[in-house]
């Protein structure tokens, strides 16, 4: 046995570094062919974006590319930017919110394969698609959570938090339920300065702004607030809210931070205020469920590199040894 070993060790080719470097290069090339990839798991996300398309979302208190932009345009820009920022394999679905309902436009689909279709659908989202003017955000949100769960996604809810008609003085009527299976974000849209809401005619032409007198300023579905008895013309049966119209600021709109935070806490979502479209993907990566997709990582290049190093070393050694 030892004699055989010594015979092999005595083999001149093995004492020649050039030979075994070339053999090693061949082995590495074989490895590159046999084991080109390693399985690994990639992080992706599945999201349902519910976009509030009620009137106050037409307020232009954002700036996009140096031009004034509405809250709706900002929300759309944020979604488009998010699609380019999130990893391929992630899925995005779209729904609209007005009144009390969320209308599903698209079930979640993969974002890279369907990029242009999703982009086109997002660009065409418009306030004109709204089927009713009211905006009961807490109900839309609660339904949004259920909808997101039914399509196996986390929720992104874009809204400025402006209830229409205004919330009753008694506060939030609907009870919100947490669903631990749905994570996500409420995205507060709009600036903190109250600004007038644009008004449109039947044909969709902008015709100025809503006036205070156009808007219900109190919620008449709830009991009258305490102190209503002191109002002018109060009558417990005929005029429980007083005879004169309560003046409010419902024609002006700003982001309702406190209310949206309260809603977010109610359904167990995170709340963020959107200032620029680029922020969204980073927030999603921090908050949303990670969906692990099987993928394969290329490792052939490592073997290829080692083979190239061996070949180069052999040539360098050969050149060096000829110049002794």
């Amino acid at each position: 046995m030892t004699r055989a070993m010594s015979r092999v060790m005595a083999c001149p080719a093995l004492r020649d570094p050039g030979s075994w470097l070339q053999v090693a290069a061949c082995l590495f090339l074989g490895a590159a062919l046999l084991f080109p990839t390693l399985p690994h798991r990639r992080a992706t996300y599945s999201l349902l974006a519910v976009v509030d398309i009620t009137g106050s979302m037409n307020v232009r208190d954002y700036t996009l590319d140096g031009r004034p932009a509405s809250r709706l345009e900002e929300a759309k820009a944020a979604l488009l930017r998010m699609m380019s920022d999130l990893p391929c394999g992630s899925r995005l679905g779209l729904a609209l919110f007005t009144e009390r309902r969320d209308f599903l436009l698209l079930e979640p689909v993969e974002i890279c394969e369907n990029f242009s279709a999703l982009e086109d659908a997002i660009r065409h989202i418009d306030w004109r698609m709204g089927w009713e003017g009211e905006s009961h955000i807490s109900e839309g949100l609660a339904r949004g959570v259920t909808l997101a769960h039914s399509v196996g996604s986390d929720l992104l809810f874009f809204s400025d938090g402006q209830e229409e008609p205004p919330l009753p003085w008694t506060g939030q009527p609907a009870s919100l339920k947490r669903d631990p299976r749905v994570r996500g974000l409420i995205l507060g849209m709009g600036g903190t300065q109250p600004v007038p809401i644009p008004k449109f005619d039947d044909n969709g032409r902008e015709i100025g702004f809503w006036a205070d007198s156009d808007m219900p300023t109190e919620n008449y579905a709830a009991p009258p607030p305490p102190g209503a008895a002191q109002r002018e013309g109060y009558n417990p049966r005929n005029a429980p809210f007083g005879a004169s119209r309560h003046t409010g600021m419902e024609n002006l709109s700003s982001v309702q931070t406190a209310y949206l935070e309260q809603l977010a806490a109610g359904v167990g979502l995170d709340y963020r205020e959107l200032d620029s479209p680029g922020q969204l993907a980073g927030w999603v990566e921090r908050v949303a469920h990670v969906v692990r997709l099987a993928a394969r990582a290329n490792i052939a290049w490592i073997f290829g590199m080692l083979a190239l190093i061996c070949m180069t070393a052999r040539m360098a050694w050969a050149i060096g040894s000829t110049r002794k």
Binding site: P108, A117, D120, A121, H124, M129, W131
Partner: peptide, 18 residues
């Protein structure tokens, strides 16, 4: 109101989703 769920597209997965 009319609602455009998906503009004309060749992406079959998107049509199926709509």
């Amino acid at each position: 109101s009319p609602i455009l769920a998906l503009p004309l597209t060749e992406h079959r997965a998107a049509v199926a989703a709509a």
